[in-house]
């Protein structure tokens, strides 16, 4: 894991920043959200992929790509969380009423 961070830190940082931006926007976004059942399915899918990655079940390059994708996704979500919380804390706006 440490190797992955040191080797692909640029991409991971990009995912984190993308997440931060998305999280920042999401607070005032007016579009449709992901429905609850879909969110559940997505969660199951991610959990399954995570399990496959941890079990090292996918061999070779796809295995590396899975590790990379999950790492980027994780950092993206962290970025989103930080972005949303920060936006909400720094700029409480009228959007909150919606």
């Amino acid at each position: 894991m440490i190797f992955l961070v040191t080797f692909d830190w640029g991409w991971l940082l990009a995912a984190l920043l993308l997440g931060f931006a998305m999280g920042w926007i999401a607070v005032v976004h007016r579009g449709h959200g992901v429905s609850k059942p879909l969110a559940r399915w997505l969660a199951v899918l991610v959990a399954a992929l995570l399990a496959a990655a941890l079990a090292r079940a996918v061999p070779g390059r796809p295995g590396y790509w899975l590790d990379l994708g999950l790492s980027m996704l994780g950092l993206y979500l962290i970025g989103c969380l930080i972005g949303s919380l920060l936006r909400n804390w720094v700029l409480p706006g009228p959007a909150d009423a919606s």
Binding site: F7, D8, W11, A14, A15, L18, G19, A21, M22, G23, A26, V27, H29, G31, G33, V34, S35, A39, Y64, W65, L68, G69, M72, L73, Y76, L77, C80, L81, S84, N88
Partner: peptide, 23 residues
Amino acid sequence: WSSKWWPGAIPLAALWALAAWTS
């Protein structure tokens, strides 16, 4: 908020593909 984080997944996927491609 989190239900509205999904649009970023599209550029994230592109980023991932690019990262996989180059690294």
